[in-house]
Design a protein around this nucleic acid. Structure first.
Length: 220
DNA sequence: GAGTCGCC
DNA sequence: AACT
């Protein structure tokens, strides 16, 4: 007898709970990013200036509603030929912007808090959602090193994060992600299916009409 | 044959 | 679904 699914749903969405164990290897950290907000947004702006957001295309030929860019030595890409990590931004032929120290520090401190003290991310995928944008249920499985977790930081407009299990059909927790929330999953949860429901319209004091999601990973 | 970071 |  552990906590029931409904109990977990309540705990996981209670912002007064600073840290919620979602299951083995998966942790929700409420309001974790807020202390570094100024440096974070300044550094993010610099990254995006060098590597602008773009709507990538899936192997099936569909344009993604989420706009993406990357920083760090490896960036995640999708195009007609498939999903992969690449050190070069195909839009300009240049390496992705280096990962700013503020981002790396945030990712490592969140990972440590979640029980992964040796996290050494080499890539950060930056996802920009506007109202209506979504990411359907998927696994992060293009990384060579599945021993290290995924660290996901939410900024700006709120979203509903679907966090399922090892099989697509597994029941999903619906987690309300607000500005500054972090979700970390690794170990037994590393390949769990997850997604984002279509973003509701809104206005955030710092990020306006957008939600930004930073997902740190060790790709190589 | 299995799977799909998409679509309706 | 159209492709891997």
């Amino acid at each position: 007898m552990g906590v029931s699914f409904m109990d977990l749903f309540e705990y996981a969405n209670d912002e007064s709970m600073r840290k919620v164990e979602l299951g083995p290897g998966a942790v929700m950290l409420h309001g974790f990013a807020l202390s570094d907000e100024e440096a974070l947004l300044t550094d993010l702006n610099a990254v995006v200036e060098q590597a602008p957001f773009r709507h990538m295309v899936t192997p099936g030929g569909h344009r993604m509603s989420v706009a993406m860019t990357n920083c760090g030595s490896l960036g995640w890409l999708t195009d007609r030929t498939g999903y992969r990590y690449d050190p070069i931004d195909p839009e300009n032929g240049q390496p992705w912007p280096a990962m700013p120290a503020s981002l790396l520090k945030l990712a490592q401190s969140a990972a440590s808090e979640a029980g992964f003290p040796a996290f050494t991310p080499d890539g950060c995928l930056i996802n920009r959602y506007e109202p209506g944008a979504k990411l359907s249920l998927h696994q992060d499985k293009d990384e060579k090193d599945l021993n290290q977790p995924i660290v996901s930081v939410s900024l700006g407009l709120p979203a509903i994060f679907l966090f399922g299990g090892a099989k697509r059909a597994d029941k999903q927790l619906q987690l309300h992600l607000n500005h500054g929330d972090v979700v970390v999953w690794g170990g037994p949860a590393r390949l769990f299916y997850h997604g984002i429901k279509p973003l509701a319209t809104g206005e955030h004091p710092r990020l306006g009409r957008y939600r930004l999601n930073l997902t740190f990973r060790k790709a190589s």
